[in-house]
Write a protein that binds this DNA or RNA. Structure first.
Lengths: 131, 131
DNA sequence: CCTTGACTTAGAGTCGACTCGAAGATGTAC
DNA sequence: GTACATCTTCGAGTCGACTCTAAGTCAAGG
């Protein structure tokens, strides 16, 4: 029967994942998350697996993966073992975009440092003038 | 006194900056860019300075600076030399967010690599592992 | 003169990703 | 047994950042 022991309400799930209850329902509505388990009264119950999946998704989201792509990944996870190769390919593609993002940020960092140096120079110049 | 020799039309400016003409006008409309020069017929003319400012803005945008913050920076640039200290402070703040972004991406990269390794293992052993 | 094409404006529409609100059912505390 | 919290659905609203449309001006080419 009800063998779900460590199942959380949507509120608790929200706290554990850092999302809002609105967002959790929204994710489910757009088909991002599989229909989550329900209690007898129709209330959602989140398993530990659900929570860890959501946490993983958050990571992908935070690194600029669109909901559509996250969705694709989730579908593969749900489809099961046979999709391991595809999942790996998807992760490798995302890995590459993350690497590119890092590289771009590092380029920008150099630019920022260059500009900061510029402004520091200006300040020193003014100090000399006004000293 | 008409020393503007290399002034570009909005079309040319769009090509040089990688933005669309729509976006260039939009940026000006929301007060992000100073009112740009106009030809006798009222058409916009972009100076080399305008172009290089826009290119710099693009950099900030690409690294997640909001239009509001970019706007703040542009205002300081327009206000002139006296704002060098403020500009440097703003850049230093942005530098810090860029550094944080890089760090977060690197954490994610490790996670991705770990998962990729997982899937590689699955392929080798055809074993069941959850995402 | 007429068409073509680049420009102008103000305002409306789109898109991704939430975020909120209304209306109603149910569970728990006093 | 009634207040109150928490859940439910579904639809609408918001926000940032564009993106596009309509209606109009103007200069040059055939």
């Amino acid at each position: 029967m009800d063998t779900i022991q460590t199942s959380l309400t949507i509120q608790e799930a929200a706290e554990k994942t850092g999302l809002t209850v609105h967002t959790l329902r929204y994710y489910e509505r757009i088909g991002l998350l599989m229909p989550v388990g329900r209690a007898a009264n129709g209330h959602r119950r989140y398993s530990q697996q659900d929570i860890s999946l959501i946490r993983t998704l958050n990571r992908w989201r935070q690194t600029g993966m669109s909901l559509v792509d996250v969705q694709h990944y989730v579908r593969l996870v749900q489809a099961g073992d046979g999709t391991a190769g595809e999942r790996r390919a998807l992760l490798e593609a995302h890995r590459q975009t993350v690497v590119s993002q890092i590289e771009e940020l590092q380029t920008t960092l150099q630019l920022i440092d260059f500009k900061i140096q510029n402004y520091t120079d200006i300040e020193q110049k003014q100090e000399k003038v006004h000293a």
